[in-house]
Design a protein around this nucleic acid. Structure first.
Lengths: 153, 153
DNA sequence: CTCACTTGGTTGCTTATGTCCACTATATAG
DNA sequence: CTATATAGTGGACATAAGCAACCAAGTGAG
């Protein structure tokens, strides 16, 4: 039946996709885990990027983002600078090495996407993306919200 | 660019789906992690199930499956029995408690699937499943094989 | 039969990922 | 100023995944 199919299909797809990504990362000799790559991408793409922005865009835990960011700074791929508008936060930007890395990553992801979409036409891909987005929204938005920072009223 | 969209869409979908599943698991007071549930499902569904079968079906690491199975046996949800056809392996079957758990799980997954597919018609869902399956195959089958399971050539 | 090799399973170790909680410092509302 | 919300950090822990070494049992070749 459909429900069970969907669950299994998603699990399989997740696993396969991650597997493919990892394989590509290896082939390209990139020493970064997937999450780090995603965060780096965020930093590179978003203009006035702060940790908060990353957290919101990726739906990840704050502390996780902090740690990943620490790693990226450590590796010289990202730089923090004071945020003139809020002294609690810092602006994030990729270093030259970070930009270089981002180019590699772009290639890598392009390859992964090309691999996955082999045999699919643009129309199908489009449909898939649309449905995936719908499912994502459905999954997130239902019962209680994912993370409403603590409140006590 | 489509490739970037696909990558991000998959990441988001993965995250959202897992999140939804976890929320449902909590609601149903089931004390099993996702992987354990999947393995239990496999054991329940496949007739002459061994660890090897699970490994192949789920594409998971052998060691992981072993450990999960140990947990499930520990919790009294699965039983091992000697495999008359191969003394290296054991046949796996759910206990009564396991069957009971499987029923709960079935409900839970049904709910998750229902949540995800809200607003999608059967046709769209079907398309999604087909494309997801294609992508999974594409992702797995490309460069080097993960493990060439049993021989066929 | 023995020998080499394969296969099913187990264990140890390491990394990656995700979540919860507590805490600091700053911002902002009343 | 006080109370509370927000941005970020770090600790602790649970889950997930992978790799390598290993044992025991099967299998095929000689």
């Amino acid at each position: 039946m459909a429900s069970s199919s969907l669950n299994e299909a998603l699990h399989r797809l997740m696993h396969a996709y991650k597997w493919r990504l990892r394989a590509n990362i290896r082939r390209h000799q990139i020493a970064l885990p997937i999450t780090h790559i995603r965060v780096l991408k965020g930093v590179g793409r978003l203009p006035d990027c702060t940790a908060r922005v990353i957290v919101q865009r990726m739906g990840q835990d704050k502390s996780r983002v902090t740690r990943v960011l620490n790693d990226l700074v450590q590796e010289g791929l990202v730089e923090r600078s004071d945020n003139p508008e809020d002294r609690r936060s810092q602006l994030l930007a990729p270093t030259d090495a970070g930009v270089e890395m981002l180019e590699k990553v772009s290639v890598l992801e392009g390859e992964a996407a090309a691999c996955l979409t082999e045999g699919l036409d643009a129309d199908e891909l489009d449909t898939f993306l649309r449905i995936a987005a719908t499912m994502t929204t459905n999954a997130m938005g239902h019962t209680t919200e994912p993370h409403r920072s603590h409140k006590h009223g």
